[in-house]
Each structure stands twice: as structure tokens, then as C-alpha cells.
Design a protein around this nucleic acid. Sequence first.
DNA 1: ATGATTATTGCACTTAGTGCTACAATACGT
DNA 2: ACGTATTGTAGCACTAAGTGCAATAATCAT
Lengths: 99, 99
Amino acid sequence: MSRLIKEALETVRDLQEVGVVSKQTLRDFEALAVPPPTYSAAAIRHLRENFHVSQAVFAAYLNASVSTVQKWENGEKKPSGAALRLLSVIERKGLEVLV
Amino acid sequence: MSRLIKEALETVRDLQEVGVVSKQTLRDFEALAVPPPTYSAAAIRHLRENFHVSQAVFAAYLNASVSTVQKWENGEKKPSGAALRLLSVIERKGLEVLV
DNA sequence: ATGATTATTGCACTTAGTGCTACAATACGT
DNA sequence: ACGTATTGTAGCACTAAGTGCAATAATCAT
């Protein structure tokens, strides 16, 4: 998370404590403060290789087609927003969380 | 997971123990045995409402656009495979895992 | 070597994802 | 109750993601 956003988030947290801002607003802000993950083609390939799985198996975990994974890794297509988020979850929590 | 697949998975596990099948193959099979998640438009809306967040906030968590979430909930568009997997993760682990 | 698994390339096609606008509904404070 | 702010709906147009298939190439173990 960028430093600026982090500080802003702190501010909103303080404002919420004092009652200037609702819990809803705080939660909204937290969600918006979550940085959009980005993965280069190479990064995706590395991520998969760290788990020692083939493209086919990786695709199965992701619930995507082999063709899609290949195009991600070869830079022909970029993962959608949700797919990027999923990749970040995998990176931090492992493939197991998908099961 | 369907009963048949579950049994087949057991068999492959046994085969692997005896050495007829490699660990790779077992892992491949496990991945393939993971059932593809499905969410109806209503199910997605319910999922979001369970977390008491607006479409905008939900979209931020998913790293998707508001427009996309709306179309999912109104049945105009269906989530991609990876998006479905992400929804299943959220359902089982909560929104927190995305941060 | 050779056979099996895994990855690449290219083509064609479908549909998800997004942005924007104007409008409706609902909730909220005063 | 009233006006206001938040939240969700509806329609449009467009871009690019996702998919399948088939043929070729690279990798790797035996």
C-alpha cells in the first residue's frame, strides 16, 4: 500500500474513532485503499512454477482454461481484475485456499 | 465434490501409495477434482449482502468495476472462471483474505 | 533414441469487463 | 414530511479477456 494512502487511511480511522465518520465509510475506505495487484507475464509464470504445477493444473485450480493461463504467461492477454486479485490470494495463501 | 470423483480420487491416492502413479499425477488429479464453483445472480447478491457492503465496496475488494458487479447480480453477465473461484474463496474465507 | 508430458503458436469466435449517463429507489438527517 | 445523499438500475457502445482447437516444438525421463 502506498505511503500516502496509508496515511489517509490512518486519518479516516481517527475520524471514525471520534465519530466524524461512520463505520461504513471506514470500511469503504479500507476496501478502496487495497491496492490493485499487478502481475507481469513473467511474474505469473514464476508464481505458478513456485508451486511446481503444470499450466493445466494451475488452470484447474484457477478454474480457468489452459489457453487462458498460457496467454497470461506469454503476455498475449492480461488477467481481469478479479483474476489478478485471485493471483494475489494464491501468492499470499497458497493454492490450498482454493480448494 | 461429487461422490464419484471423490472415490476416484481415493483410488488414485492408493495407486500413488503403491507407486503406480507419481506424486505429480496425484496432484494433477486433486486439482482436477476440485469442482468448478457456480453462483447464480441471486447467490452473488446474497453473498455480498452477507458482508453488508455496497456494490462499490464489493467491487473494490474484488478489484473489479462497479458495472461488472451490477451485471453479475442482475444476470446480464456471468463471472469468468477465475472470478467464480474468487467468489468461492470469499464465501469460505471472508473478505479479509483479499487484503 | 523414443515416447510421454508439457508448452507454444496461430486462428477464429464468444462474451466478460468497463465506462458513462440518466434515472429510480431507498435511507438519513434535520 | 422534505430535501438530500447514498445506493442501485438500465441502456448504450466498445475493448479486450476468455475459450477451443489443432498443429508444432521443446523438455524430460527411461
